[in-house]
């Protein structure tokens, strides 16, 4: 293959990877945040103690996190088909396992970031007569922003790794390109280029995440 032939493939694969990682990251961020907040709120000593719900949620999250992504992806194919109306290959259907794999991962990081918020600040807000909603939005989420952002960059990087695995199962993207051309057709240059691109993307995500987290932190 010549570079002229490789370029369009690389470009398309990169777009697909960014699409899968980007959309699943957005969904993961939203739902992971929700689950993480619920984990903290429903804790026995939380603002809205619900020990049973907390246990169940914690268990689900742990199961989700302990399952290797490859297995999760295959195991939930029936569910994926249900969501996408029967389709299970191509980039879009893979958003389902990516998001489902990402949520528990990020939820735990959200939980950790929220627990880092000094309890004294929450007590102070309570003593001021703040509502639970105000405490969640104006104290917990706001104080935890640097942690939430660095957690998100770690999650996005994990998701990029997942997209490569999704590629192996026909999801497209750089992972798919690396396997279909780099590995199966012995195109060394394709392999090299995909590896380099993945590294660049991961480093870029990390750099942006660090920068934003640092900007948000006033500690």
């Amino acid at each position: 293959m010549t570079w002229a032939e490789i370029w369009p493939l690389l470009r398309q694969a990169t777009v697909e990877t960014l699409y899968m990682a980007g959309v699943s990251a957005a969904l993961t961020a939203a739902f992971g945040l929700l689950v993480g907040v619920l984990l903290v709120l429903t804790d026995r000593r939380g603002l809205l103690p619900q020990p049973l719900l907390n246990k169940v949620l914690g268990l689900v999250v742990n199961i989700g996190r302990s399952l290797p992504f490859l297995i999760l992806m295959v195991a939930i194919i029936p569910f994926t088909k249900l969501v996408t109306g029967g389709v299970s290959i191509g980039t879009t259907p893979f958003l389902v396992p990516l998001t489902i794999g990402g949520i528990p991962f990020y939820a735990r990081l959200v939980e950790i970031a929220l627990r880092e918020v000094e309890p004294g600040v929450v007590a102070a807000a309570t003593a001021m007569g703040a509502t639970r909603r105000e405490i969640v939005t104006k104290v917990l989420l706001r104080e935890a922003r640097p942690g939430l952002v660095s957690g998100l960059s770690v999650t996005v990087i994990a998701l990029i790794g997942y997209t490569a695995m999704a590629g192996a199962l026909g999801g497209g993207g750089l992972g798919y390109l690396a396997i279909s051309h780099g590995y199966e057709r012995f195109e060394g240059r394709v392999m090299l280029a995909t590896v380099l691109l993945l590294i660049v993307i991961v480093l870029a995500v990390q750099a942006v995440g660090d920068l934003v987290a640092r900007r948000l932190s006033h500690k």
């Binding site: 000094e118 004294g120 600040v121 007590a123 102070a124 309570t126 003593a127 001021m128 007569g129 703040a130 509502t131 104290v139 706001r142 104080e143 922003r145 948000l216 006033h218 500690k219």
Partner: peptide, 20 residues
């Protein structure tokens, strides 16, 4: 109760300030 708390100021050993 929240209303009543607003009429009671409180200061804390470790300040309890919002770092953000």
């Amino acid at each position: 109760l929240r209303e009543a708390r607003r009429g009671i100021g409180m200061i804390h050993q470790h300040f309890g300030l919002l770092s953000s």
